[in-house]
């Protein structure tokens, strides 16, 4: 049983490392702030969840239950706060006046103009 947990945790950690790497590459390569937020929030939430799941499995394999509960707490906290932080950044950017590059449709601009006038 503990061997199974050990192997699972290794798989999860390597997959999480891959997704963290992909999200950083996205942050570097995407054209503007809003698309970079996509990479930073979504890919990184998944990657961090996987690495923390690997940590939790490793703690369970060692039979250290409080550490496992604490790891799950960190995971839940990240899952709840990552989207909130990205909302705050996106909203602040738009209200500050940073125009997204190459948008096809922009229905938010009308609302902002309505608020200002």
């Amino acid at each position: 049983m503990s061997d199974l947990f050990f192997g699972l945790s290794t798989v999860f950690m390597v997959a999480g490392l891959f997704f963290a790497f992909a999200s950083v590459v996205g942050v570097i390569r995407f054209p503007d702030v809003y698309t970079r937020l996509h990479a930073s929030t979504k890919a990184l939430s998944g990657g961090a969840m996987m690495i923390l799941a690997g940590t939790a499995f490793r703690a369970a394999a060692a039979g250290h239950w409080p550490a496992m509960v604490k790891t799950l707490l960190i995971a839940a906290f990240l899952l709840a706060t990552n989207p909130l932080a990205s909302h705050a950044i996106a909203r602040a950017c738009y209200r500050h006046g940073i125009v997204p590059k190459g948008t096809v449709i922009d229905e938010y601009a009308e609302k902002i103009r309505g608020d200002r006038s």
């Binding site: 891959f18 997704f19 992909a22 999200s23 590459v25 996205g26 390569r29 995407f30 054209p31 809003y34 698309t35 996509h38 990479a39 979504k42 890919a43 939430s45 998944g46 990657g47 969840m49 997204p100 590059k101 190459g102 948008t103 096809v104 449709i105 922009d106 229905e107 938010y108 601009a109 609302k111």
Partner: peptide, 29 residues
């Protein structure tokens, strides 16, 4: 929820690692 999260992660990772990035972003109400 976790299925959607994994799918989102996979999709964004694929887009980020593509050789050429072509996006059609939009803001919708």
């Amino acid at each position: 929820f976790f299925g959607e999260l994994l799918y989102a992660t996979w999709e964004v990772a694929l887009i980020a690692l593509r050789p050429y990035i072509e996006l059609n972003p939009a803001i919708i109400r």
